[in-house]
Simulated assay, not measured.
Amino acid sequence: MNDIHNEEASEESVSPEAALGRVMELSFLMAADMDAGQAKLGLTRARATIMWQLHHSGPTTQRALSDALKVTPRNITGLVDALEGGNFVVRTPHPTDRRAILVKLTDHGAQTAASMETGWHEFAGQLFGHLSGAELEAFLGTLDGVLERLRTVVARSLGA
């Protein structure tokens, strides 16, 4: 009887529903960890996303931030206002377009973004540093396939 029960449990634990359950748990845990880390820095997820974008792309216009983050310009204005109030970013005139304003990291913002990046690398090591190259390659191959299917599903649901 135990062998039958174990076999059923084993089949249940490798079902598509079990895989989705684990991916959902992963997304919840990742979001909780990110939110906690960002809160320690005085940031929300949306504000941290803007800082990450600026850290990697350099000074940019609010319109470009709006496009990159796929949010409304009005939303970006509020987020940049809050970041500016926290001394994370500053608005400056665009050097070649009189009508445009650039958003750029302050020294405090650059230090905070660098700290975020250090945390990113440390976290990657904690999660995946124990895997061999072959294990990591297999994991990434599987994950890439899942992500591609998810992108297709999301694009269809959004009518794209």
Rank of each mutant, 00 (worst) to 15 (best):
Asp3Gly: 12
Asp3His: 14
Ile4Tyr: 12
Asn6Trp: 11
Glu7Ala: 13
Glu7Met: 11
Glu8Lys: 14
Ser10Gln: 07
Glu11Asn: 10
Glu12Asn: 07
Ser15Met: 03
Ala18His: 05
Ala19Gln: 11
Ala19Trp: 04
Gly21Lys: 08
Arg22Glu: 14
Leu26Lys: 05
Ser27His: 06
Leu29Phe: 09
Ala31Gln: 11
Asp33Phe: 05
Met34Gln: 09
Gln38Ile: 02
Ala39Leu: 14
Leu41Trp: 04
Gly42His: 05
Leu43Ala: 03
Thr44Ile: 06
Ala46Pro: 06
Ala46Asn: 13
Arg47Gln: 15
Arg47Leu: 06
Met51Asp: 01
His56Glu: 15
Ser57Val: 09
Ser57Lys: 15
Gly58Leu: 02
Pro59Leu: 02
Thr60Ala: 13
Thr61Gln: 02
Thr61Trp: 00
Thr61Met: 01
Arg63Gly: 05
Ala64Thr: 02
Leu69Ser: 04
Leu69Lys: 06
Lys70Thr: 14
Thr72Cys: 03
Ile76Trp: 00
Thr77Pro: 00
Thr77Asn: 14
Gly78Pro: 01
Gly78Leu: 05
Val80Leu: 03
Ala82Glu: 02
Glu84Met: 15
Gly85Ser: 12
Gly86Leu: 14
Gly86Lys: 15
Gly86Ile: 04
Val89Gly: 02
Pro95Gly: 00
Ala100Ile: 00
Ile101Ala: 12
Ile101Arg: 15
His108Tyr: 10
Ala113Arg: 00
Ala113Met: 02
Ser115Ala: 15
Met116Ser: 03
Glu117Asn: 06
Thr118Lys: 08
Gly119Cys: 01
Phe123Cys: 05
Gly125Leu: 05
Gly125Asp: 09
Gln126Pro: 01
Gln126Ile: 05
Leu127Phe: 09
Leu127Asn: 09
Phe128Asn: 12
Ser132Gly: 10
Gly133Thr: 10
Ala134His: 14
Glu135Pro: 00
Glu135Asn: 05
Glu137Tyr: 09
Phe139Ile: 07
Leu140Gln: 10
Leu140Tyr: 10
Gly141Ile: 06
Gly141Val: 10
Thr142Gln: 07
Leu143Phe: 10
Asp144Gln: 09
Asp144Lys: 07
Asp144Pro: 01
Val146Phe: 03
Leu147Phe: 13
Glu148His: 12
Thr152Asn: 07
Thr152Glu: 13
Val154Leu: 10
Ser157Asn: 13
Gly159Ile: 03
Ala160Asp: 09
